[in-house]
Amino acid sequence: MKTFLTFTLPLLASVSMSTPLLAETPEEQGMAIAVEADSRDNGFGDFSADMLMILKNKQGEESTRQLRSKNLEVENDGDKSLTIFDKPRDVQGTALLTFTHKTGSDDQWLYLPALKRVKRIASNNKSGPFMGSEFAYEDISSQEVEKYTYKYLRDEQLDGEDVFVFERYPVDKKSGYTRQVVWMDKSEYRERKIDYYDRKNSLLKTLTFNDYQQYEGKFWKASAMNMVNHQTGKSTRLVWNNYRFNTGLKDRDFDRNSLKRAH
């Protein structure tokens, strides 16, 4: 966070002393909301969780994937994550290591258990589907404030809750989106709904977050997320289980060697 703080100290000061809406322009207001949401997610250290991914096609046929993820907070940069595939069984033991960066491309390595080979992969396919799902890599990778520019739109009520509505615009030109509209609750700065607009600026997908649970008395995590693709009629539901915070994960649990042990 430090590099970012030096740029936004005046802004942050206003955030901490009053509500973010006192910022001047819609862009500053949007940024202030994102910074506040990010700061509430900071300091988790590490966490791991199990994920069930249910893919549904237009005809309603379902297929499921089962994954485990480990995440490590990195100071001054994006988080590190290790994703291990348990199902489908033919990819069991396959693992993906990602070093997210606040700016520039992420670093990614894929472990292929049949060859016992760790392969560096060019991570320019952020807009590509993750495991054939409706989630793109950029949707599920660590969300950093610097990855977007922002614009506050309005206050609204969503399911009886007061929310901010703001837009964010991906900085990376390889993003599959022109913009995303985010509904975020005012009480805890949790994302409630996101509309994704494709490169032609037409509505592509909507993501809704359900059943938020608080961990460690601080961190809110949605237990279910549903992504609906309006253009194809397909959808993907993520169900998160077994969240564990501060389990003592270290850098060593996120190096190239750790991929080979990812059973």
């Binding site: 060019a122 320019n124 396919n125 807009s127 590509g128 589907p129 793109a136």
Partner: peptide, 12 residues
């Protein structure tokens, strides 16, 4: 070298 193109639908 290996160069990877990405199409709009995620096809690589």
């Amino acid at each position: 070298f290996e160069y990877t193109f990405v199409l709009e639908n995620g096809f690589e």
